[in-house]
Write a protein that binds this DNA or RNA. Sequence first.
DNA 1: ATGGAACCTACTCT
DNA 2: AAGAGTAGGTTCC
Length: 369
Amino acid sequence: MTVDRVWRSLPVKSSEVSLAKVLRCGQTFRWKNIDHVWSFSVDDRIILLKQEDDDLQFSWIMPEDKMENTNRQEKETLDFINDYFSLSTSLESLYSDWLKVDEKYRKKIGSSPFIKFPGIRILRQDPWETTVSFICSSNNNVKRISKMVDSICTNFGTYINDFEGIPFYSFPKPKDLAKPETEGLLRDLGFGYRAKYIYKTACKFVDNEEFPEITIEQLNAMRSKSYDEAHQFLLQLDGVGPKVADCICLMALDKHDIVPVDTHVYQIAMRDFKFKGKKDLKTMNQQVYHEIRLFFKELFGDYSGWAQSVLFASDLSDLNNGVNQISTKEVKVENDSIEIKKRKVITTADEKITKETKTVIKKRRNLQV
DNA sequence: ATGGAACCTACTCT
DNA sequence: AAGAGTAGGTTCC
C-alpha cells in the first residue's frame, strides 16, 4: 500500500540544524535514516524529517487505530520538533561568539570547526531515555550503543507502526524494564555488564519504598533545578557516574553550560587549546574531571556544552559510520557524503604534530541492500 | 582516601 | 587468521 504522505515545511536553515550531523554525533542513538528520510518514534507516533535546501520537511505516522484528528496531530508534531531541536535558540549567533573565542585561544590547525561544521546543536531530549542511553554508552562506541538502544525499544517498548517495512516501537518506561527477567534478557541481547545497571536503575524509579524521591517526575523536575542538584540526583542511579550524569544534564536537563569530560574532550583540551593538565589521563579523577569541565565552561560561557559538541563532532573521523543507515533501493553514494578534514596525529621523538589530511568519506560500510 | 583493575561485547587493526 | 586494542566509563576493592 503506497500512501501519499503529507509533508509540512518548517523554515529552518541548515546553518541552524544539520540533521546529518546532529543526529549522528553521539547525543541521540535512535534516529534511522531510510532513503534520506530521518525517522524516530516518540510517545504514540513516528516522526519523519527531511532536510531540504532552505527548510525542514516533517511528517508523522500514527498507530493504525489513531488516524483521525490530523490538525491536532500536526500541531503536536510541530511542538515536539520545536522543543526537541530547541529551535527558539539561534545557533548562528552562538557560533559567531564561539568563533571569536576559538580564534583567540585555539592552537591554529586549519580552519575553525565553527566555520567548517555549521548546524550542530544540542538536542533537548527526554530525560529517561537519555539516562538509559548514556548508561549504555560507558566503554562503548556509537554503533553498538545505537544497536542496544534500538534493541531496548523492540524488546521492551510498545509497537507503534511500520515505516518503509520497518517496525517502530516506543522507548519503554521504567516499569517495562523493572521486571525480574530484564537483566538476563538484556545480557542475552549483548548489553554486557550494563544489563544490571539498566535493570537496577529502572527498579529505583518504580520502587517508592526504598527510593521515594527517585521518580520520573523528579527526574523531569531537574530541568528547573540547579546543575549541582541535578548532577547529585543522577549520581544515585546505577551505571551513572560524573560523565554520564553530565551528558544527561546537558542533553536532557537544560544545563547548556555543562561540558561532559571524556578521554576525547581531554585530548581536545590538551591538543587544541592551552590546557595544561597536572596529571596524566591515566589518573583522571574527580578533581581533574572538574578542572577540565570548568576550563571549557570558562572558555565558552553559558552555552559551553553546545560549543563543545561542535569541537567533538569535528574531531570524529566519520559521523555516520553506517549507523542505522538503511536503503530500500539500490546502493548509491550519499548526496550528503561530505569531504572532511581528518587529523592524523604523527608522533615524533617527543612532539605531537597534527597534520591535516584530506579524506573523502567513501560509501558507508553498512549501506548494503 | 585513592588509584587501578575488572567489567561485556563487537568491532578494528596488525 | 588469531590476538591485542579500543569504544564519549562506572564500580569495586
